[in-house]
């Protein structure tokens, strides 16, 4: 393997290590909400600094490769995709922290019926995250497209969940604080799904060389 290819592998490995941390943070933050687990929520807050540090290191590595290697074609697309995925992963880490903070806020609140929607939405969102990263690892355009197709379903679930929570709060004004926390949890999940969609779009650019952002009609080609 040429030295440059080893450097590209190192970039991918670091990005995947960061992805694993972010996936774990998302899983733990949601579990902390559902199971009211303070320790898990605090572990998400603790890992944020490490994720931020990884973002800086990956940017540094990628920009160094751009400056020193002048990559072309597939190599160029890999490095630019890595830079963008890196930013998305860091944002997803932040959103997991937001969810963990809501989990801490919800520790003492009683369980309400609307919470049963959260495992459903989070299951779909975590599946999108996993598929978008698998699509990156395996350069799988079809898998990336399947992530794009899921985004609308998450939006619909968020909308339905919001209606349910608002309705619940109208009937139970004493639970408004709890309801607001849950709306925030769902909103953060929906934004994590948006970042997974961004990653899937970056994978399509990496594999096919096409930019499908803001072009829904191109997504299925």
């Amino acid at each position: 393997m040429r030295y440059f290819e080893e450097e590209l592998e190192r970039l991918k490995t670091q990005l995947l290590a960061m992805a694993a941390m972010v996936e774990a943070a998302i899983y733990r933050s949601i579990t902390a909400v559902v199971q009211k687990d303070q320790t898990l929520a605090q572990s998400v807050l603790r890992d944020e600094a490490r994720i931020n540090q990884m973002e800086v290191e990956i940017d540094d590595l990628a920009i160094g490769l751009l400056a020193l290697r002048q990559p072309m074609a597939g190599d160029l697309r890999l490095i630019t995709a890595a830079l963008k995925i890196n930013t998305d992963l860091e944002r997803m880490g932040d959103l997991a922290v937001n969810i963990a903070q809501r989990a801490l806020s919800l520790l003492d609140a009683p369980s309400i019926k609307a919470m049963i929607d959260i495992p459903h939405i989070s299951g779909l969102v975590q599946s999108m995250v996993r598929k978008s990263l698998d699509a990156f690892v395996h350069k799988d355009a079809d898998l990336a497209r399947s992530v794009l197709a899921s985004d609308d379903a998450v939006d619909d679930l968020r909308s339905a969940s919001n209606h349910e929570l608002i309705s619940f709060m109208e009937k139970n004004p004493q639970s408004i604080r709890q309801g607001v926390d849950l709306i925030a949890v769902v909103r953060n999940l929906e934004r994590i799904a948006d970042h997974s969609t961004n990653i899937a779009e970056d994978v399509l650019f990496l594999v096919k060389g096409v930019d499908v952002r803001h072009h829904a009609e191109m997504r299925q080609e």
């Binding site: 040429r2 440059f4 990559p71 072309m72 074609a73 597939g74 190599d75 160029l76 697309r77 060389g209």
Partner: peptide, 15 residues
């Protein structure tokens, strides 16, 4: 240099 169609071109421009 970004998205060549032919594998030979890709191989050449990426070294």
């Amino acid at each position: 240099f970004q998205t060549p169609a032919q594998k030979e071109t890709e191989d050449y421009v990426t070294g």
